[in-house]
């Protein structure tokens, strides 16, 4: 019958619309705010139509902001660059370490295998602060204080378990037949790994990489405690708009938009692999 199907379709559409509004309205509102001045934002009732201004964006990009209480220097672009550097390098390191390990867990049954896997996952259990506090007290001695290398190393806490878990699931899920056939032909395991397994696992790697990137990007405390001002990511940098002379909501909004952009672009690029890549060991049909 047509009726129940149509009703279902309409309900489905409404539900989807409600969901989209719930999640995207704040983003939309932030986007609007980024084109408003502070006085326009701090106004009730909030207005949908206003005279837009690019002042917030130009302030962020040019690095200076002229307020009534003087000219502020803004280092936002530098923060953006730091976030990008830290997240990208962390993910690359995690992938380099994690993909072979995930392959090993999936393809080989070796003693201590599950133990090691659980141990690696358990690093995710450690509350970041638990590690951070002694690190902040001792990093100085190992000479890793205030270095990008030190930060990237600590970021592995966030990225590595995630990548391991997701990529391992993907490897387990994909059939080892082709690799086996390739090996039987006389190639080494390395070739089987790099020529066959990895390319086939691209969706899983892409998905894991993207998620790890997002979580690394969103991190707040690590760089704050362990690095100086010139290495701070955007999460800390955005707080600079909370000044003694008032909160610059317009700039915070513009900063959020700018900080979402790189991740969004990455997500759009990896989008076609994203959903496919997150199959975690269930049986495929």
């Amino acid at each position: 019958m047509v009726r129940p199907d149509l009703l279902k379709l309409v309900l489905r559409g409404l539900a989807l619309a409600a969901v989209v509004i719930f999640f995207l309205f704040p983003i939309f509102w932030i986007l609007l705010m980024s084109f408003q001045t502070n006085t326009q934002i701090l106004r009730l009732p909030p207005r949908l139509f206003f005279a837009p201004t690019l002042a917030n964006y130009t302030a962020l990009i040019s690095g200076t902001l002229h307020t009534a209480s003087g000219t502020l220097q803004i280092t936002f672009l530098r923060n953006l660059g730091n976030s990008f550097l830290l997240s990208t390098c962390s993910v690359i390191v995690s992938l380099t370490l994690g993909v072979p390990a995930a392959y090993a867990f999936a393809r080989f049954r070796f003693r201590l295998g599950e133990n090691i896997a659980f141990t690696l996952l358990s690093f995710r259990f450690a509350p970041p602060l638990l590690v951070l506090l002694p690190l902040s007290l001792d990093f100085q001695q190992i000479g890793l204080s205030n270095t990008y290398v030190g930060l990237i190393w600590v970021y592995q806490l966030i990225c590595l378990p995630l990548i391991l878990w997701i990529v391992r699931g993907y490897f387990e899920d994909s059939s080892p037949d082709i690799e086996h056939a390739y090996r039987v032909d006389g190639h080494s395991w390395w070739r089987a790994f790099s020529r066959i397994a990895v390319p086939l696992a691209r969706p899983g790697i892409a998905a894991a990489g993207l998620l790890a990137f997002i979580f690394a990007w969103n991190n707040f405390v690590f760089a704050l405690i362990l690095a100086s001002a010139d290495k701070q990511p955007v999460t800390v940098g955005a707080l600079a708009f909370v000044t003694a002379a008032g909160i610059q909501y317009g700039q915070i909004a513009a900063a959020i938009v700018l900080s979402i952009l790189p991740t969004l672009i990455l997500a759009l690029y990896a989008q076609r692999w994203l959903v496919e890549g997150l199959s975690l060991g269930a049986v495929k049909g």
Binding site: S136, L224, V236
Partner: peptide
Amino acid sequence: DIFPEDVYFDKVTAALSSRSTQ
């Protein structure tokens, strides 16, 4: 080095407690 006010004193505590010479 300039840090935002919200996190400034945490940074000072972290720097001093780690005996940083920075």
